[in-house]
Design a binder for these strands. Structure first.
Lengths: 266, 266
DNA sequence: TAGTGGTCTAGACCACGTG
DNA sequence: ACGTGGTCTAGACCACTAT
């Protein structure tokens, strides 16, 4: 906060004392970072460190403003962006909360499969296996691990209205998901990502998907109850947590008869 | 602007004169609409009416603020949202411009097809036909027309690096696209959506897509140079213009060997 | 009634692009 | 040097929720 913009009429100078507030590097520097971006970073740190956990309320805007020694408007803009990134959820009159995969309809955000009539149907998961093994070169690269590092492999089916529709192969870094077993998986109720965040402190923030049409290989076809060679939607997903660190590789095969993958371009 | 919020210290009352500024319906009414939303609506009207055309610059924030008799911050928030909706583009130091499909890399926004190496390749269009006919019940419903209303049907192939990769069937309302012929289509250089906006004053704002894996039917397979039954990505798109009016139905078949459809979940 | 987020204003200054 | 968007502040009031 050396030469903070605005407030020429402020006779006190740069906000009383510099204290423990790491706000700095402002005007006319070659690497200019707005104050609200720095505040955004500080809030993200608190989220990542677990100071405020998923579902919990965070301090009010005025409280954060006084903590960081900035105006409410600056905190506001930081929270605005974090809310746009789905890290926080604002509720007027109540407060601002840490986003979570537990509540709400956050399911659809990561599985955009609708029935032909456009209705979102509930699904049930049927676990096939959960093994620990060493990462292949390909998986290691995508998870930012060293080859042969330990990983967890989960295989499961998803059934919509009793119809087997999705086969998923999920790779997770073994270090983060220590103690993940088939038993624990089957005991847990709710979305997988909800379990990851409550049981392993790893919250999925965003993901990228590569989508193709492929012919069902015999083993896959068998599990999905379709003939070999049947056209399937292949969905390769990489999920990221705080700091854009990859923490999940998922390969999915979708049967798209009666269902479709919904996407919105805007 | 009867009892505008803020500014108790304003002794003048409700902003000089009410004049031609349609800002109204403020506080404590059952249907509360923020001022900046109303400004957003007014700006959208000017966009839709063609007062500011695609690619052109719009008046500066201060100018709009004085026109609408609100503060710059209020105009700013309205423009912020319009920029987030891809209707406007801000350029620091220069001004705010009406978004267009002509320039930039707006191609990828509506055709998210990448090569396996993750690189975006250029493509060329090969027109197959352009006919005028009467809408089927299905197409009429999706375009919000009456059955048997006139529509235009375009068929084309897209080639990436010489490889035939996409077959598109495009339906457009005949009323809006009067005078669209195969010749005019083939003469035009650049993206289809760019032509629609410059030649027919219809700008595509957003679209929804239904994605499935299907087996290639013989006629489609033939055009795409793949065997019948080959797995193809089926992409059914409906595009919308201002006011969420549908103005295009597009059915695409993608060959996803060597290429994939990229999607980001966030 | 009190607290929270949401809106609005007015003014100052900074960063960027162009003369 | 000037104009544009971008940042920051301080303060007032509104809308919503809980007590």
């Amino acid at each position: 906060m050396t030469s903070n913009p605005a407030s020429t009429a402020n006779p006190i100078g740069p906000a009383a004392s510099g204290e423990a507030v790491p706000v700095a590097a402002p005007a006319s520097s070659p690497t200019f970072s707005p104050l609200y971006q720095q505040i955004k970073g500080l809030i993200t740190q608190s989220l990542e460190s677990g100071e405020w956990k998923p579902g919990e309320i965070i301090p009010s805007e005025v409280e954060l403003a006084s903590r960081y020694k900035v105006s409410q408007g600056t905190v506001r803009k930081a929270i605005d962006e974090l809310a746009a990134d789905n890290l926080l959820v604002r509720r007027q009159g109540k407060g601002t909360f840490v986003a979570t995969h537990n509540e709400d309809r956050a399911q659809f955000r990561f599985l955009r499969l609708l029935a032909d009539d456009g209705v979102e149907h509930p699904h049930v998961s049927r676990l096939l296996e959960c093994r620990r093994l060493r990462a292949s070169a390909d998986i290691a690269r995508q998870l930012d691990l060293k080859p042969a590092d330990p990983v967890v492999l989960i295989k499961r089916l998803l059934q919509f209205d009793g119809e087997t529709t999705v086969l998923d192969e999920i790779w997770l870094p073994g270090g983060v998901f220590r103690g993940l077993t088939l038993e624990r998986l089957s005991e847990y109720k709710g979305p997988l990502y909800a379990m990851f965040e409550t049981e392993f402190g790893t919250r999925m923030i965003r993901a990228t998907e590569k989508i193709r049409a492929v012919a069902a290989e015999p083993s896959v076809a068998d599990l999905l109850h379709v003939p070999a060679g049947f056209p399937l939607l292949s969905v390769e997903r990489v999920s990221y947590t705080y700091g854009d660190r990859p923490v999940e590789v998922r390969r999915g095969w979708y049967v798209t008869t009666g269902y479709y993958y919904q996407n919105d371009l805007s």
